[in-house]
Amino acid sequence: MGKGARRKGPKKDRKPKVRDVFVARPFEGLAAEPELIAMREFVPSATARLTLAGERDRSVTVGSVLPMAAAAFVRTDGEVFLGMQVQTRSSDISRDLGRSLRWALEAEPGDVLSVPDTTSEPVEGERLQDLLDPNAELDVQLHEDFSWWLPEDTEPTGEVALSLERANAAIMPTERLSTGAYWVLAGEKAHLRWVWPADENRLLQALARLAAAGTLTLGEGTRFAGSFRAHGLLVPVWDLDPEAHAREWIEPAKELGTRLQEALESLDDEPLNAAERRSRDGLIGRQLTLR
């Protein structure tokens, strides 16, 4: 060994560090992606059972929003709830939810996690993709109020009662038409908001193909209003007749979904023609802000 050389000690095993980077499409890889985005962004009162990965036998319910916008809680009867609509977030919403889910699985009845952990160093195995069955879809159940926050035959008190009253007052009538597709009556207007798990550019082209053909509607009295981005996906929106009941749009939505899927598949063989490209340019300018 030469003069001044330092003897190297034994190498220490180091866990690979997970980089903290912004994840634009946090639910990618999960079959439940469209429903998770809908519950996160615009569905008012809804619940669904989660299918955990592995041999876990614990039952967990994901809810659109929990009391006081909590990240998770264990109801006094032992039911575990994970909240989608919370006040804080990190660069990776899937990681936030995964951490809240892991907390809930170890919590006791009555425990509440007010906010998700958004500050700890990222580690492997803590995202929803690591904790849920990736192939399981969500059977979303819509509710007219937030009485599901409490066990049956329980009267709310204190802050929970106030939060329940405010939450109930803010609910807009909403119905689920199909996977990721929700009818909502917003005051004097009715809309269809549809979360499509497709690449944004390809979906935009497919929408343009239907627009150029005059088939980007659900029938007479409806129109394509525009689209907005949500967690890496494009969400098209249609204006509907507010006098019609939600169930009247189930079949037209199914037919529109078939046309849109066919348009997506046709893009592999037929690039957009001039008229369709003009339609696409027009659609790009019709971005909405969801309120």
Rank of each mutant, 00 (worst) to 15 (best):
T217M: 01
G9D: 11
N135L: 08
T289F: 10
N168S: 13
L162D: 14
L177R: 01
R259V: 07
L185G: 02
F73I: 04
D130T: 02
R277V: 07
K8D: 05
V237R: 08
L240T: 02
D153W: 09
A198D: 11
S64W: 04
A263H: 03
W196G: 00
L290G: 04
A246C: 10
L256S: 02
Q141Y: 01
S163M: 12
H231Y: 14
S163V: 06
A167G: 10
I250Y: 09
S178E: 15
T118M: 08
L283K: 07
T61G: 00
L207Q: 05
P134M: 05
P116G: 02
T88L: 12
A72D: 01
W194T: 04
G29I: 05
T47D: 06
D239R: 13
T215S: 14
L256M: 15
V86Q: 14
E155D: 14
T88E: 15
D199S: 09
A206G: 11
S178L: 13
Q261G: 08
I250S: 11
L132Y: 02
V112D: 04
V86F: 02
L267C: 09
T76L: 13
L233D: 03
F146Q: 06
A32H: 01
Q141T: 15
P44N: 12
V195T: 11
T51C: 08
G219D: 08
N168E: 11
R99W: 00
D96I: 00
A32M: 05
K12S: 11
E248I: 02
A275D: 15
G54K: 05
A170M: 14
E152M: 06
E55A: 15
R278T: 09
